[in-house]
């Protein structure tokens, strides 16, 4: 169903996201802060990109711009071939519905809905019915099959984040953004979640951009971008955990 509804927007074969010359300045005059200072970025379909860097380096800012949650001071962002930086609110909302998935650091589940209801929430909002087989497979993948009827308050942090990931995948978005999805979890659970993110890329070809502080991300990411002071300063492919730690140290994380 998700695939059909995307028919009206042309998806170029390889680039799910294209950003050019992204600048984001906060405030004006003396006190202005440049959170991003000209970032160029392409994310290919089916790729898992990890974004790393010291606190305040602009990781979240970059995610927000790519996802159309915020507007850049300069530069352009294309998602699924559509230029999003000048869309109005209702067009952006529709774009989010159809092409973008989110995973937050705080799980942001609705406490009065059970796990399954939370997962299908994006579909309900769009007025669509879930595809039963797809939902079952998704919940199975996330290890939630026997937790369908549990409320968030009855789930562990890791389980809650799995519900949130399932929720972001249920619409089969063109691209999934995750900002520190493990930031609120213990080390073991973090590892599980990271593996799940990788598994969803492998199983569904889910294009994903993820901000993380975990050196372990190296093991799962296709590509790792390092941000410092609002610029991409390094890019690693197929790096080992040691490589990642070395770069992190050099950047003072």
């Amino acid at each position: 169903m998700g695939e059909q509804s995307k028919g009206d927007l042309a998806v170029p074969a390889n680039a799910a996201v294209e950003a050019r010359g992204l600048v984001r300045r906060y405030g004006e005059g003396e006190t202005a802060v440049e959170a991003l200072r000209g970032v160029d970025l392409d994310v290919r379909s089916g790729e898992l990109v990890a974004v790393m860097g010291p606190s305040g380096s602009g990781k979240s800012t970059l995610m927000h711009l790519l996802a159309g949650l915020d507007k850049p001071t300069a530069g352009t962002v294309q998602i699924a071939g559509t230029e999003i930086t000048n869309l109005d609110d209702s067009k952006l909302t529709r774009l989010r519905r159809e092409h973008i998935g989110f995973v937050f650091q705080f799980f942001n589940l609705l406490p009065m809905l059970d796990a399954e209801e939370n997962v299908i929430l994006p579909l309900s909002i769009a007025g669509e019915k879930p595809d039963k087989a797809w939902l079952d497979s998704l919940l199975g993948q996330m290890g939630l099959t026997d937790r369908r009827r549990h409320r968030p308050s009855e789930l562990s942090g890791g389980q809650q984040q799995r519900v949130a990931i399932a929720r972001s995948l249920v619409t089969r978005p063109t691209i999934l953004f995750a900002d520190e999805p493990t930031g609120n979890l213990d080390s073991k659970t973090s590892g599980e979640i990271l593996e799940l993110m990788r598994a969803s890329v492998d199983a569904y070809g889910q294009t994903t951009v993820m901000v993380t502080h975990e050196a372990r991300a190296a093991a799962i990411a296709d590509r790792i971008l390092f941000l410092e002071d609002g610029s991409i300063v390094k890019e690693l492919r197929g790096a080992s955990q040691q490589d990642v730690l070395a770069v992190m140290n050099s950047l003072g994380t």
């Binding site: 996802a67 909302t93 159809e98 989110f102 909002i125 619409t171």
Partner: peptide
């Protein structure tokens, strides 16, 4: 969150 996952105004 609701707005982020596609709820309109």
């Amino acid at each position: 969150m609701l707005r982020a996952i596609g709820m309109t105004r």
